[in-house]
């Protein structure tokens, strides 16, 4: 069991719910958020090892989450997931030092492997 913390941000509840269940089975401590605003508030009070965020969200979107995390919490790795994958967003995300980038639907097994890599495992 690891005590690594993973944050999931997606404006659709199902993504957070499914990810939480799957990742908790791996022993991670998982918190889910439906928007970037509340997620950033939480990040200010609790350190997370990995943040998995949706790209397109109302208000604070995935790119903004990425920028904030990279400037304030440089140790935290960010994994981006999006239903609207295209080359431009991928390049932009990669420039922003994203750890990984997945188009949705994301295979849970691959997400788990990516998180493991992010944690240096």
């Amino acid at each position: 069991m690891s005590d690594h913390r993973v944050m999931i941000i997606d404006d659709e509840k199902i993504v957070g719910d499914m990810a939480k269940l799957s990742l908790e089975q791996e022993g991670y401590i998982v918190e889910t958020f439906l928007n970037g605003e509340t997620a950033l508030v939480r990040l200010a009070e609790q350190k997370f090892d990995v943040v998995v965020t949706d790209l397109k969200m109302k208000g604070i979107d995935g790119m903004e989450v990425l920028r904030t995390v990279k400037s304030l919490y440089p140790d935290t790795r960010v994994i981006m997931i999006t239903a609207f994958a295209n080359l431009d967003t991928a390049i932009e995300a990669l420039r922003g030092d994203v750890h990984d980038f997945f188009p949705k639907p994301v295979k849970i097994k691959e997400l788990k492997a990516s998180i493991q890599r992010a944690l240096g495992g």
């Binding site: 659709e12 199902i14 993504v15 239903a83 609207f84 949705k104 295979k107």
Partner: peptide
Amino acid sequence: DYLFDIAY
């Protein structure tokens, strides 16, 4: 086995 959303 996949994380999916309503858009999919």
